[in-house]
Design a protein around this nucleic acid. Sequence first.
DNA 1: CCATTTTAATGTACGTCGTAAATAGTTTAC
DNA 2: GTAAACTATTTACGACGTACATTAAAATGG
Lengths: 263, 263
Amino acid sequence: MHNDGVSIEYSGTGDPTRSMELLWGVGEDRPRRGPKPKLTVAGITAAAIAVADAEGLDVLTMRRVGEQLGVTAMSLYNYVPGKGELLDLMLDAVYAEVGPPAPADAPGEPVGWRARLERIARDNRALYLRHPWLLRVATSRPVLGPHTIAKYDRDLRAVDGLGLTDIDMDLLVQLVNDYVHGAVRGAVEDAQAVRSTGITDLEWWEAHAPLLARVFDPERFPVAARVGSAAGEEYQAAHDPSRAFEFGLKVLLDGVEANLPPR
Amino acid sequence: MHNDGVSIEYSGTGDPTRSMELLWGVGEDRPRRGPKPKLTVAGITAAAIAVADAEGLDVLTMRRVGEQLGVTAMSLYNYVPGKGELLDLMLDAVYAEVGPPAPADAPGEPVGWRARLERIARDNRALYLRHPWLLRVATSRPVLGPHTIAKYDRDLRAVDGLGLTDIDMDLLVQLVNDYVHGAVRGAVEDAQAVRSTGITDLEWWEAHAPLLARVFDPERFPVAARVGSAAGEEYQAAHDPSRAFEFGLKVLLDGVEANLPPR
DNA sequence: CCATTTTAATGTACGTCGTAAATAGTTTAC
DNA sequence: GTAAACTATTTACGACGTACATTAAAATGG
């Protein structure tokens, strides 16, 4: 077996200039000659997202995407320069789901910075849960697609007008996004471990308890022993995946509140 | 080219039971017959870490690790069941670097929960900077190696005795670790993008500015335009990578303070 | 000491991946 | 109608993890 784990991919490995042209639809003068294209960039992107959503990033291969569209892998290269650029397109496409920034006074928009940041955090969490592969795509030097920028704008509006410097606004938005990424990552990976291995947490624990009992000395690590077993039991008894998330979010936003400039 | 990006790997894809036996040194009865082993599990782990540190996770192949040790890839399989288990070993090995938990009253130990949590966060950050590939290894269903447990114990001691429930202690430690992971991830990936592509941030920006100027409408995203360019300039002028980290850490710990039980 | 047994290291091979290059087929422009 | 432009397929290459078969080396039992 080549890779029975979950291989994570890197966005931006392709030619970023080409990615950006694709993202912004530059140079889309319709081809004048030759056979009608069976595919579109948007269609390929959607198919790739569907594959990644359903089967994970490690099954997302050019051959698999082609198959999804009734086409060979190499056909895709008529539309997309390579897999790296396709990942860039996938990223920007899912960011479209959070929607464009709305005016602050639009009906239904949360009022107050705290409600707005909570909304952003929860929307991001939902996005990660819908597209778990997002957590595994590194976004270093992000390709600035239209929806990526829209999301950035939307995020920033949550903390605009509070007397923060531009720099601090940027830092704050990044802080919230970093937190959400980290918090969801753990939860999603747990769930995927269950699905991909077919072993539940309980079974896993029971399989390893005997070995741990033999090698682990609770005297040496008393706090870990106590808290670990307490957390394990709680986790078994009433596992609410959003509880840790909401706990951390509250703590984080309390900290933000303490660091806002006086009104 | 097969994968010019950075492929990220998954710990725990091998047989976790076998990994734990390796981690705890179970069944290490010395071989009675046959040629002397040229290698050791610890040596292989160290070599793999060296490769990953120096060249990144995408160059970490069994063939490459073998080469590092003057041996073919297949030799490694006499010591380690597969690459997944090797990753488990690498993880636990680097956790050893943070050192065993020390008694709270040992000389040099920070006093007070806040100083202890800061220490943990900064130690973790330093660990990620030394071993950037750590950020790319998913730790779902972590294999409970000795140093992993020691680290957990060490982390928990920072918040022990504050009147928190065991569950809240666990959540709090996880919160800090999640934050550090998220914050360092962005910074490290930026740096790696520069190294692996040979393009500096300034060059990258200059290459894309013309296209962006053509397609990006600042009227539509005024906040992003303003803050983005301010952040970009600041970033160019005086880039202190630890600034964002310390900012976030302060905010987070202020939030923790607001959520501690009254003394 | 030698034959047997056990273990380590190697060599070869398979099926996977991304994608370069060559080829075949299709549509439009002149 | 022919040439040019374009799309889709086929084939092939070098990488990957690792199964399998083979060879070499050490310790044991006689």
